[in-house]
Each structure stands twice: as structure tokens, then as C-alpha cells.
Computed example of a mutant assay.
Amino acid sequence: MSRDPRPGEIYLEFRPVGKQVKVTAIDAATGIEVSTFGPASVAQEDLKRIVVRKLQRRIEQEAAAKTTRPDPTLY
């Protein structure tokens, strides 16, 4: 099953680690990955909201860094 990722598509993984849950979010278009931990007692929607916001912030930071970096091939 092969298909191209759609813009804005995010893959989420919830993995229990003891009394916590590790939540990983990956942006399908860029491959940028972030993760966070939270108590297993918290609703998945709350953890999802946190990790998606963290991913969006990271994508914004990466985009800003690309536009402000000088070209290393210039003198």
C-alpha cells in the first residue's frame, strides 16, 4: 500500500512505558518527529493535542531556520 503523504498529515504513536505513555508525532511530508511523555491516566486526546502542537512549533522553527541561515557557499 503505497501513496504520497498529504500536506498536514501526521502519524501518531502511543506507547505505554510503565505508568506513563510516550506519544510520538511524525509529519508525513517533512519527516520531522517529536515526542512527549504523560501519565497513563490522562486522556489520549489531551496528549494528542500537546504532541501535535509541539510538532507544529518544531515545523515552524525549522522553516524559520531555513530562511535565516546564510548560504554556506557564499563568501
Rank of each mutant, 00 (worst) to 15 (best):
M1D: 07
M1P: 07
S2K: 09
D4C: 06
D4Q: 07
R6N: 04
R6C: 04
P7C: 05
P7V: 09
G8D: 03
E9L: 07
I10G: 01
Y11D: 12
Y11C: 10
L12N: 08
R15Y: 09
P16H: 10
P16Q: 11
V17H: 10
V17A: 15
G18N: 00
K19Y: 14
Q20A: 05
V21H: 06
V21F: 09
V21T: 07
K22H: 11
V23G: 00
V23A: 00
A25D: 04
I26N: 00
D27Q: 13
A28C: 09
A29Q: 12
A29W: 00
A29C: 11
G31W: 02
V34E: 07
V34W: 03
S35N: 13
T36P: 01
T36A: 13
T36E: 02
T36Y: 05
F37T: 14
F37A: 14
G38T: 01
P39Y: 08
P39Q: 15
P39G: 15
S41E: 11
S41G: 10
A43V: 14
Q44A: 14
E45R: 14
R49T: 10
R49I: 05
R49G: 09
R49L: 09
R49E: 06
I50C: 00
I50V: 12
V51P: 01
V51R: 06
V51A: 01
V51Y: 06
V51G: 02
V52M: 03
V52Q: 03
R53W: 07
L55I: 04
R57W: 03
I59M: 02
I59N: 01
E60Y: 00
E62M: 14
A63C: 09
A63W: 03
A64M: 11
T67S: 06
T67A: 05
T67I: 04
T68Y: 08
R69N: 08
R69A: 10
R69S: 15
P70D: 11
P70N: 09
P72W: 05
T73G: 15
L74K: 15
L74H: 14
L74N: 10
Y75M: 13
Y75E: 15
Y75C: 14
Y75K: 13
